[in-house]
């Protein structure tokens, strides 16, 4: 008789692992990637390939050098790469994309200890770094279907140029200028629905985030439906404000996080220097996450105060 294995219960586990969760996020981003290729051409695919490759390579290389366990197969670096690509303009110089990808993985993720330990979303932070470092290329948008540059709808609103705005339908489908993956609300909502269906995320953050932007912009006399389809709001609300490591994990915490993101986004859009504020709002709320988590701790059932 061979020896039997003895281990602590439970002896069965649910099917999800970190890798299957990340795989689901990648699957959910496919519609947005496809939309970006349709609207911006093959260069969109090139940018995505570069950011994914550099993110994975940075993760592998850093872990090799520091003697950490190789984690590229959990697919989290690939998710960061794809998310970053979807946050960049299609004509971003390749060397800048490489720089941003390496910064996301090495500076924002690995220096803090790798997956689960970083306090800020790597893709968002890298985008903000690039926006400041490469202000020109990061705000040069190609108009859909041709190679001339064009302002984003939010920039047009900011400039008061209402007449050149795309229609609501064009906004929904994604026929507007903007970052690779932020333009098509349709593709993003498809992906978001998939994440909800797979229970990778819950409704709390996206609904609180988008709902707050809707209500707040309506109160300020803006076009709320137009506002929620503009900029990177849907991409941010479903895919980046729901990042596990950098956002609260209780439903109440997530609602507070989403409302905070929504408020900051509108503040920046309406009164700030930048036309868009989703990235900044998520990054700022990332910093507040430990405090939100502390305030929204679950109360042990039957616990007596010591």
């Amino acid at each position: 008789m061979n020896k039997l294995l003895v281990s602590v219960s439970p002896h069965i586990r649910q099917g999800d692992t970190t890798a299957t969760i990340m795989r689901d996020v990648l699957i959910a981003l496919v519609p947005a990637l496809v939309a970006s290729v349709i609207f911006f051409g093959a260069r969109a695919l090139l940018v995505a390939a570069v950011t994914i490759a550099v993110c994975v390579l940075s993760e592998w290389g850093f872990e090799k050098i520091t003697g950490r366990e190789n984690t590229i197969y959990d697919l989290s670096a690939a998710v960061t790469g794809l998310l970053l690509a979807l946050n960049l303009p299609v004509d971003i110089p390749i060397w800048q994309a490489i720089f941003g990808s390496a910064a996301a993985i090495i500076m924002v993720k690995q220096l803090f200890g790798g997956i689960g330990k970083n306090f800020a979303n790597p893709a968002i932070t890298a985008r903000v770094i690039m926006l400041i470092a490469f202000a020109g290329p990061m705000t040069t948008w190609r108009a859909v279907g041709d190679a001339v540059s064009s302002a984003t709808p939010l920039a047009l609103i900011k400039a008061g140029d209402i007449s050149s705005l795309p229609s609501l339908m064009q906004m929904f489908i994604g026929q507007r200028s903007g970052s690779l993956g932020e333009t098509s609300a349709l593709a993003l909502l498809l992906g978001g629905a998939y994440l909800l269906y797979r229970k990778v995320i819950t409704w709390h953050t996206p609904v609180a985030f988008i709902g707050t932007v809707f209500v707040f912009t309506a109160l300020l006399g803006e076009q709320p439906v137009y506002q929620i389809m503009s900029g990177g709001l849907i991409l941010g609300a479903f895919f980046m404000a729901t990042d596990y490591s950098t956002t609260p994990s209780t439903p109440l915490g997530q609602i507070i996080f989403g409302i905070g993101c929504g408020l900051i986004t509108v503040l920046i859009r309406v009164w700030g220097n930048y036309p868009e504020g989703v990235s900044f709002s998520i990054l700022l709320m990332n910093i507040l996450t430990p405090y939100i988590s502390k305030l929204t701790k679950r109360k042990p059932i039957g616990g007596v105060k010591a």
């Binding site: 692992t17 970190t18 969760i21 984690t71 959990d74 989290s76 790798g114 997956i115 689960g116 330990k117 596990y244 490591s245 609260p248 994990s249 209780t250 439903p251 679950r298």
Partner: peptide, 13 residues
């Protein structure tokens, strides 16, 4: 593997 802070343990307890 490393904890990814997904909160599933907290939300299922």
């Amino acid at each position: 593997t490393a904890c990814i802070k997904c909160g599933r343990c907290v939300n299922s307890c």
